[in-house]
Write a protein that binds this DNA or RNA. Structure first.
Length: 631
DNA sequence: CTAGGGTTAG
């Protein structure tokens, strides 16, 4: 009866008269369909019910609606048509109709349905409210939810733990975590692990990590989801190391992580650029035999790309049995961030050929790729494709890519036009992007204009001063360089402390400029001297323009010498096996001088160095960088 | 006869 091919109904009907069957014979089919919903088989069951003259039966139709509510993609009209055949709807059938509404595009319609249910004198029960409150949470129906909360209390379901949990979940979905907390506090004896988890998730969404932490410690019992929620609270609120530490503790007590755990932990590893940790997660996935779903595969793909292993990323991409739009986006953006513009574009073309509809993020990757590969014509064409063919409204990021693309190609007036004509409110970020182009192309006058304008707009941000000074330095206007540096010092701008990190044997070593705190500091500085000697022999002359302070020449050289990136490289030579590449993650942009030195190091030591800075990768190899000296 | 909490991309 439930094979994948249509069943010859006639042969079935000739065997017996349906009136002989009780409704009970359908129940085995319902339970198998609940476990494994299939629209086709549900329709078959429906057909049999109709033939047997039971289409008006509330219980049978209620079961069909349950299955439809559980199915991944349900034609909503179908659920409604089923409900309409019921001669005398009971609360069971109505509850499952609410569930179908909750899953639909407009979940709040379930509330309208609820009032019609009341008019028809169908009395709601505790199930009704869990489904209704769920629907309100999905549709962000705060007002509807509050009214339903009133009904819950009035009708006496206020102590049902399912209903209470649904209320907590509803309020936190509507960003009213204080209301969630009220419900939570009202009934201390009426809590289970789900109550606590819902409450944790509410505070996590609200960014109150400290509260999540203390509640987590207070919980009488914790399951995998409690741990996942705790880890997510850290990771989604920028406390990446804490997230990883929590994951370590979770494994320490012998709890088996599941897919959600691993996806979150991979995201933290990716953001931190910790390839060793990422590989550890991969080995956990392998040893637990966790199936590589699209979500998990995409998270892995992203981790490899963000940790500098774009080849690994690509191998995994080619092996994945299933991909969705995010998978493609991650792969395209990853390629672009590694400066492999042509490959990113080839992927995008393949993606279009497979008939997938690109979204805004896809185009950020594609436009970035064009910019990195210097493909001006293509970039313009894709920008037009995005707006004209796919109706995607360009966001600031898209304009940013275009300004970068045009500026890099030296088409400065077109870039200015783009900024001035297309954006409703001109954004400083776009001008800063163009300022970068001025530095590369040595456009002093324009750079001066833009730089001064930006400094005026935000005198406390040091990045604009640095760029302007770099522009002056490029044309050897040292007086101006000194003037800008002084201005910056006088105004005491907010300097973001730069750091570089390197990972080895599961440990993370983070350096700041001039760092002498590392346990192997002496060796590191000795290694630095060796590097310097070899680099100087290769003809390197320090470029003083990158030094931030207005100090004597000799000291300037010292200041460059101990940039965090160089300390990390020197340490890398000490701990990374010969032949293996040195991977470094930085928070800020690579300075001109460090970039130059890194190139030379890669040549004279025959060592590949991969540096991830704030927005892209630099692969230093054989004296060249993958960014082609434009960043 | 039906129920609840956690997951990726710029």
């Amino acid at each position: 009866m439930f094979a994948n091919k249509p069943v010859p109904l006639l042969s079935f009907t000739t065997k017996a008269s349906y009136s002989q069957f009780s409704t009970a014979i359908f129940h085995p089919f319902f339970s198998s369909l609940r476990a494994n919903p299939s629209l086709f088989q549900t329709k078959q069951a429906h057909a049999h019910i109709i033939i047997s003259g039971l289409a008006g039966n509330a219980s049978l139709m209620g079961h069909l609606l349950t299955i439809l509510a559980l199915s991944p993609s349900t034609p909503f009209d179908y659920s409604q048509s089923i409900y309409q055949t019921i001669t005398n709807p009971n609360v069971f059938a109505s509850n499952n109709m609410i569930r179908c509404f909750a899953k639909s595009e407009s979940p709040l319609k379930s509330v309208l349905f609820y009032s019609s249910m009341l008019r028809n004198c169908v009395r709601p029960n505790n199930y009704s409210f869990t489904f209704l409150l769920q629907a309100c949470g999905k549709g962000i129906g705060f007002n509807e939810g509050v009214q339903l909360h009133g009904h819950v209390v009035k009708l006496g379901f206020g102590e049902d733990v399912y209903v209470r949990n649904a209320l907590i979940h509803l309020y936190s979905s509507c960003c009213k975590v204080e209301s969630s907390k009220k419900v939570f506090d009202e009934s201390p004896h009426n809590r289970d692990v789900i109550t606590w988890n819902a409450m944790l998730a509410g505070f996590a969404r609200d960014g109150r990590v400290d509260v999540v932490e203390s509640m987590f410690d207070e919980m009488p019992e914790r399951d995998v989801i409690s741990w996942n929620t705790m880890i997510m609270a850290y990771v989604h609120n920028g406390k990446l190391e804490e997230g990883l530490e929590c994951f370590r503790r979770m494994r320490g007590i012998g709890l088996i992580p599941n897919e959600a755990t691993l996806v979150t932990v991979l995201s933290a590893s990716a953001q931190l650029g910790l390839i060793e940790h990422g590989r550890l997660v991969q080995s956990i996935i392998d040893s637990l035999n966790i199936p590589l779903t699209v979500t998990l595969g995409t998270a892995l793909l992203d981790m490899y790309a963000k940790c500098g292993c774009i080849e690994q990323s690509r191998l995994l991409f080619d092996k994945m049995p299933q991909r969705d739009i995010s998978t493609w986006n991650v792969m395209i953006c990853g390629m672009a961030s590694h400066g492999r513009g042509k490959e990113a574009i080839a992927l995008f073309e393949r993606f279009l050929n497979e008939g997938i509809r690109p979204v805004n993020v896809t185009f950020i990757g594609v436009l970035n790729a064009c910019s990195r590969a210097g493909l001006v014509k293509e970039g313009k064409r894709y920008f037009k494709l995005m707006t004209d063919n796919y109706g995607i409204e360009p966001e600031m990021e898209h304009y940013g890519c275009m300004v970068d693309l045009l500026g890099r190609a030296g088409l400065v007036s077109e870039a200015i036009e783009m900024i001035e004509n297309k954006v409703v409110s001109p954004n400083p970020v776009l001008w800063a992007t163009l300022l970068c182009a001025c530095r590369i192309h040595g456009l002093i006058e324009l750079g001066e204009n833009i730089g001064n304008k930006l400094i005026e707009l935000d005198p406390s941000y040091d990045g604009h001063y640095v760029q302007l000074a770099n522009i002056y330095a490029k044309s050897r206007k040292w007086d101006e360089v000194i003037r800008v540096r002084r201005l910056m010092a006088e105004r005491n701008t907010n300097k973001i402390a730069g750091w570089s990190l390197i990972e080895t044997q599961g440990r993370v070593h983070q350096f700041v400029a001039g760092d002498r705190k590392h346990e192997r500091s002496l060796e590191i500085h000795k290694m630095l001297e060796v590097i310097e000697t070899r680099v100087a022999e290769a003809g390197y002359v320090p470029n003083l323009s990158s030094v931030l302070h207005d100090i004597g020449e000799e000291e300037k050289e010292n200041a460059i010498r101990v940039h965090s990136e160089r300390l990390a490289i020197a340490f890398g030579f000490l701990v990374i096996g010969a032949g293996d590449c040195i991977r470094i993650v930085k928070n800020l942009r690579v300075c001109t001088d460090c970039h130059e030195v890194s190139k030379i190091i890669s040549r004279v030591f025959e060592r590949e160095i991969i540096v991830r800075d704030g927005s892209r990768f630099h692969h230093f190899k054989e004296g060249k960088c993958s960014c082609l000296d434009y960043w």
